[in-house]
Nucleic acid binder design. Sequence first.
DNA 1: TGCCAGGCCGGGT
DNA 2: ACCCGGCATGGC
Length: 221
Amino acid sequence: MDSRLKEAYDRLFAAYGPRHWWPADSPFEVIVGAVLVQNTSWENVRKAIGNLRENDLLEPHALRDVPVEELEELIRPVGYYRVKARRLRHVLDFLVDRYDGDLEAMFQTNLRELRQQLLGVHGIGQETADSILLYAGGMPTFVVDAYTYRVVTRHGWLDFDADYDAIQDYFQSGLPEDVQLYNEYHALLVEVGKRHCRKKPICLGCPLAELLPEGGPLEPE
DNA sequence: TGCCAGGCCGGGT
DNA sequence: ACCCGGCATGGC
């Protein structure tokens, strides 16, 4: 148990409280949202999900049967709507063809193997795979995103050349393997990221400001 | 106006 | 094994 990670968590939780992630009504909705939110703000995704809900399409078979051109129009607000319509289709093909759309069955698969299967789907990278596993499946894998990278590198916990695996290992080896903790920690990192860890750091008033090295946040190079 | 958002893929060194 | 551009809407 890394005391620095626990300290950071306690400060974030004290500042922001439970985040109640992921904002979705079902595991399938989490999966759809995980693809649509790639490099996009959640506000945009909410509209797209709303479009799908209005049309009763928040179900694997129904959504897979929508022609990709129609899918594009339904998800247009998310941006990158042409590529994302196709990525979503690939994910739906995977869910239906491999598990007959039965997510309960899919999440019976062991974590390492299911993660590999998801990474094999065109349009699912590491963050999207881990988001699906953790937030839709309740499986213990730590989600790393751009905010996570900025927090750990600017605080000097890891070097700026740290890749996804290194950052994930840092959290997973420094914390107990606990789904609820991974869930909450990532949500809290996103919250602090939105407020204080954008492309330019805004450390004034940040709950983690006390943990910064002398002289403030580090920079690449 | 310009910059940024809860990435990922493909092509070029 | 890196590095980089493309993808695109919406909010501030």
